Each structure stands twice: as C-alpha cells, then as structure tokens.
Simulated scan of single mutants.
Amino acid sequence: MHFFLRYAYRLFRLNNRLLAVMTVGFVLIGSAAAYALEPDTFGHWFNSLYWVMTTMSTVGYGDYSMKTIPGKALTMVLYLFGIGLLSLVIGKILEAFASIKKRRETGQLAYRGSGHVVIISWNKKAQAAVEELLSSDPGLEVLIVDENERLPYDHERVHYVSGSPTSGDTLERAGVGTARAAIVFADERMDDYQLIDGKTLLIASSIEEFSPDVHTTVEIMSEKHIKNFRHVKVNDFILSHDAVSSLAVRSALNEGTIDLYRQLISRQEGEDIYEVPRRSHWRTYREAFQALLEEGATLLADRGDLGINRKLDEPIPEGARLYAVCHPDTFRRLKEARESG
C-alpha cells in the first residue's frame, strides 16, 4: 500500500509536459508489447493500440482479449498503472479548464484579439454602454478594464482584465494597441469631482503613451476640466451630467420629444445616426440629400455641421464625412450598394 501511495504522490507532482510524455510513452510501449506477445490476436499494431486505450479507460468492449499468460500479465500491469495514469491526465485537463475559467473570471487572462472596444472603469453607465455595443454589432467583442476582483458582466463576447488602467501592463493585457476604440468612464467611487477627472486624465495619458492611435472617448464631470486635457490626445469628451439635464429640459419644453432623443442615442430601438458612404457622383449637398432620401435616409450633418440644410447647393468638400438618420436595414443597404458599386 505504501508503494502505491508513493507512486500516486509522485505522479501528482509531475509537471504537465512530463506527464503527457509519460502517458504517450506508456500507451505506445504497452501497444507494442501487446502486439509482440500476441500478434495473431490483434492482426495489426493499431488494434493493439485500440485495445490498450479501451483497457486503460476501463471501457473494455471485449472484442480483443489476451489469451496467453504473458499477455494477461501485461493486462494486469495496464490495470494497475495505466488506469491511474490516464485518470490523472484527465484530472489535469479538467484542472486546466477550471484554472482558465477562474483566470478569466478574475481578469488575469490577456486578450489576444483585435478590433474590440475597451471599456475602462465599471459602473451603471459602463454596463449600459456594454449592452449597447453588444446589440449594435453581433460580431463585436468588448473588454472591460477595472480593479474589481471578478468579471462584472458575464457574456461570451465580453472579456475582463483586472488591474490599474494607468498601468502599461494592464493596457497591454487588454490589447489596447489593437483595439478599435477605448471609452473611459468617470470613476464615481471617488467623491471629489476634481479627483475623478484627474484620474481620467491620468488614464487618458497612459492610453496615449501606450497606443496613441486608438480612438479615445472620455467622460468628465466638469466642462472646465477639458482644458487640462489639451496635452493629451482625446478624440471625444462626454460631459457626465449635462446630457441628462439637457434631455430633461427638452422633455419639459417639448412634450414627446424625449422618445426621439432616446432612439437617436440608442441602437437598440428605432432609427439611428450613421456615417453614410459618399458616392463619387454627389457634387452638392442637395444631390446627396435627395439620393439618400430616395433610399429612406435623411442627410443630417457633415461632421459636426448640422446646418447643411441651409447650404444645399454648396459643393461637398474633400474630406467630408456625411451623417444621416435611417433604419439599420437602410444603412446596410447603402453600405452594400457602395461596396458593390
């Protein structure tokens, strides 16, 4: 009994690579020995390999069996050592899967994909953003970076990296360098607005240092702090409370308009704003407006210029980026027509 305990203890201490080599070697040697002892029983070496595997796994179909004393002795060796060895291998595999699952849930795994969106700092607004992203593109993957100990949002297309977002190691594990965009939400677990925006500034500067080309959107608590970001490359700012206040005022002054705004800021319902592909034969805004209108879309703006309806006869400048309001199906048709044309 002491021998078997020592045997089991040593097996458990083996590293995975050595254990795999030992298992493969044991199976191959056992198969070769079985075929050498009773070649007529198996007829082919592969059949002896099949017999060893079924014996070690305790399946034992009975279509092959040893008939000689040496053959039966080999079968006993397979019983005594092979079954335990194979069980240990299976246990190691299950342990590896459990370890990967645990590391994923605790944010210790590095992300190896690309074209994803990185969400930094977890709160209710970040959760709403994740849900919006997942519903807007069925192929898009989202990665959350926060200092929580466990994955805050469980979804097959949501990944998690735990750590400080100001650390280069954390940003590297999050794959920020290959990301499509990064959104930094204000850390509302802090009480002071200045400290919150200060942390956001530090995160933005860390992202710029690590990956200066990634499109970065940050949420700030106070508009006066925008000037503090002048030395940091940030593509867009979101004022934390201004949007809510503005929507509340518009709802009070224009009854019923809140549904329109909700549709425009959410891809989960109704129409949405899309950047429409420009066609080469569009010379003026009017031509673009009329062509899009026939397709079921309404031309809204050129970049941040919402006043193009007052200059429809002006030529569309080089580098223009046209935005229209339309249904997602309409946008897909416009995109497909552009690609096919």
Rank of each mutant, 00 (worst) to 15 (best):
S114W: 01
S114G: 14
G115E: 10
H116T: 05
H116I: 02
V117E: 09
V118H: 06
I119R: 05
S121F: 13
W122N: 03
K124P: 02
K124A: 14
Q127D: 09
Q127W: 04
A129M: 13
E132S: 15
E132G: 14
E132T: 07
L133C: 03
L133V: 04
S135E: 12
S135D: 12
S135G: 08
S135L: 10
S136D: 11
P138C: 06
P138A: 13
P138E: 15
L140F: 08
I144T: 05
D146L: 05
E147M: 10
N148T: 03
E149R: 08
R150G: 00
L151A: 06
L151V: 00
L151Y: 00
Y153N: 00
D154F: 01
H155F: 07
H155I: 02
H155E: 06
E156V: 07
R157M: 03
V158M: 07
V158S: 02
H159T: 03
Y160V: 03
Y160I: 04
Y160A: 07
Y160P: 12
Y160S: 06
V161N: 14
S162Y: 02
S164K: 09
G168L: 05
G168Y: 03
D169G: 08
T170L: 13
E172A: 12
E172G: 10
R173M: 15
A174Q: 08
A174M: 06
V176G: 05
V176A: 06
G177I: 08
A179C: 07
R180I: 08
A181L: 01
A182V: 15
I183R: 11
I183N: 11
V184W: 14
V184D: 06
F185V: 04
A186K: 12
M190C: 02
M190L: 14
D191R: 04
D192A: 11
Y193C: 02
Y193G: 01
Y193T: 00
Q194T: 01
Q194N: 13
Q194W: 10
L195Q: 14
I196H: 08
I196K: 11
D197V: 01
T200G: 03
L201C: 02
L202K: 09
L202H: 05
L202I: 01
A204R: 04
S205I: 00
S206G: 06
S206R: 05
I207D: 06
E209C: 00
E209P: 00
S211H: 01
S211Q: 01
S211E: 02
S211L: 05
S211G: 01
P212C: 03
V214W: 06
H215L: 09
V218C: 13
V218S: 09
E219H: 05
E219W: 02
I220Q: 13
I220R: 11
M221P: 00
S222M: 14
E223L: 01
E223P: 01
I226P: 02
